[in-house]
Design a protein around this nucleic acid. Structure first.
Length: 300
DNA sequence: CCGACCGGGTCATCGATAGC
DNA sequence: GCTATCGATGACCCGGTCGG
């Protein structure tokens, strides 16, 4: 049984159409076999859709992907007031369907990347065919933005393609995060994953271990220990590496001054930032910028 | 504006230890 | 096994100063 879709979004997906569907009478999904992907983000009432001989009961707040080339049919009527967001799209590259077991190994290989490796880039999205996202509000906001832009008649039509791509990435990230969290063995490991996520989100703020300990209701000393035990890295070092990794991105892609970057990263002393950068990169921020700035452009 | 060096207060980490 | 605390120690952090 295939439960996940895997593809690359190194290029944006092709957004065809989308909107909000609201029923005005009892409604059953039509029987059809179409050649593009459909995402259904359910808002109200329950949907009953069969795909590839599997019956999905989609509750409010849940998402269902319909895969091209498969027969879809409603197997039960939904009442008046049923409503959902829908999107039609195709991937620019090949996609594959994964079983749960294949998904396990995908996520495991991602987990082996404990640290934010320099310029590490991943363009893969992993999308569950049927899921209940953790933060459905974020997905709703992206949908609204997308539909707003789609009907705005921009000259540049890629805005909608990129926003739709962004939506898939959001769903993918929530999936991976959830997957990692539930598949971990001990409560401590789960906690550490949450802490790493927290650090990732707050990388542009001033972060201290004490702060994280308060956030997660732990003794700061104890927190350091479980983090070290789970990842092999000091939590402080992890925070620093996260920040340095962001700093390198900014040095390469922007003209923001070293001081400006330090402030952006929540380090209000650029001298300290410089020292930290040198410790991890064996060169000063300016040297790094001179060495790498414009390199991507010259390759075009 | 950038980078190097210094001084000292603060904080994170480690080993040992203890209660649950 | 999980969590917290204590004391020691070294790393971190921040301000100042100076030279290019």
């Amino acid at each position: 049984m295939k439960e996940y879709i895997k593809s690359s979004v190194g290029q944006p997906i092709n957004f065809h159409s989308g909107g909000q569907f609201i029923t005005t009478e009892n409604w059953t999904h039509m029987k059809r076999n179409i050649d593009i992907f459909v995402v259904i983000i359910n808002l109200n009432e329950t949907l009953y859709i069969e795909q590839d001989e599997k019956r999905y009961t989609v509750l409010p707040g849940e998402i269902l992907f319909l895969v091209p080339g498969q027969l879809h049919v409603g197997f039960n009527p939904s009442p008046i007031g049923t409503s959902y967001y829908w999107l039609h799209f195709t991937f620019p590259n090949n996609y594959s369907l994964l079983t749960r077991k294949m998904m396990d190994s995908e996520v495991t290989s991602m987990r082996s990347n404990l640290l934010p490796i320099n310029n590490h880039s991943c363009s893969t999205v992993l999308l569950p065919i049927h899921t209940k996202p953790r933060e459905v509000e974020r997905i709703h906001i992206l949908c609204k933005q997308l539909f707003d832009v789609a009907k705005a008649n921009y000259y540049n039509t890629y805005n909608a393609h990129y926003l739709a791509t962004s939506l898939l990435i959001e769903i993918s990230e929530q999936t991976i995060y959830h997957y990692k969290t539930v598949s971990l063995d001990t409560a401590a490991e789960r906690k550490v994953e949450m802490i790493k996520e927290w650090i990732r989100i707050h990388v542009f703020k001033k972060i201290s271990v004490t702060m994280i300990a308060e956030e997660f209701q732990y003794n700061s000393d104890y927190l350091s220990r479980i983090f070290k035990q789970a990842t092999g890295y000091n939590i402080q070092e992890y925070i620093h590496r996260m920040k340095i990794s962001k700093a390198k991105e900014l040095l390469m892609n922007t003209n923001v001054t070293v001081k400006g970057i330090a402030i952006t990263l929540g380090l209000n002393d650029e001298k300290y930032f410089m020292r930290l950068f040198k410790k991890y990169e064996q060169m000063t921020p300016t040297e790094f910028r001179k060495a790498y700035f414009r390199m991507p452009m010259n390759n075009v």
